[in-house]
């Protein structure tokens, strides 16, 4: 994976495969602590202790279509290379929380990449899932909640090209302003 936004897309696709109806994606940057953290929290079917233990094994997958599952192990590896940490918390029927941290200034910390594109890709493919995204840099924050957007749409589909275009613009501008405000 070239950047962190692609890892996030991949992990969120895992959540959707686990029948999540709501996914929270939280990015936090703390300049003082030189820390970047990602959190992906879903309300999908969750994993039991045995599955969590095997989840980081690249040769484990719940899928039938191929015999290995690389997504989580790739993110864990990316965090490890960047002097960071990785954790999974999960309970069957409750959901899963994935957390990865990175040392911001570390040479092996991947760039964040295009979060706007990751979010619209998720909305386009899974309009029925609610996505809550927040990006915090020190004390400033940008956030987007597709549940709020859906409530304003008056029955219009959230994945119609016009709406997707607006959402993408909003995220791009929001994140640009966030960087300037820091």
């Amino acid at each position: 994976m070239e950047d962190l936004s692609l890892h996030i897309l991949d992990i969120a696709e895992n959540s959707i495969n686990a029948q999540a109806k709501r996914i929270e994606i939280k990015i936090k940057e703390n300049k003082e602590k030189d820390l970047l953290s990602l959190e992906i929290v879903d309300n999908g079917k969750g994993m039991d202790q045995k599955t969590i233990e095997r989840a980081l094994d690249p040769f484990f997958t719940t899928k039938k279509i191929r015999r290995f599952g690389l997504g989580l192990s790739l993110l864990a590896e990316a965090a490890k290379l960047a002097n960071g940490s990785f954790s999974i918390e999960s309970k069957p029927t409750k959901g899963t929380k994935i957390r990865a941290t990175f040392q911001s200034s570390h040479i092996d910390t991947k760039p964040l990449g295009d979060m706007a594109q990751t979010l619209v890709t998720l909305i386009m493919g899974h309009p029925e899932v609610d996505i809550l995204f927040s990006h915090k840099i020190n004390h400033s924050q940008y956030y987007l909640d597709t549940k709020e957007i859906k409530a304003q749409l008056n029955g219009l589909s959230i994945n119609s090209p016009e709406v997707i275009g607006l959402i993408k613009k909003n995220i791009k501008e929001g994140l640009y302003n966030l960087r300037r405000r820091k």
């Binding site: 692609l6 897309l9 696709e13 594109q117």
Partner: peptide, 25 residues
Amino acid sequence: TVHMGTCGIAAGARKILDSLMKEIE
């Protein structure tokens, strides 16, 4: 349908979806 598994994402599927969205728009 754009195939968006780990393999697809790593190979550049997100860019493909983006270019299709642009064409449609």
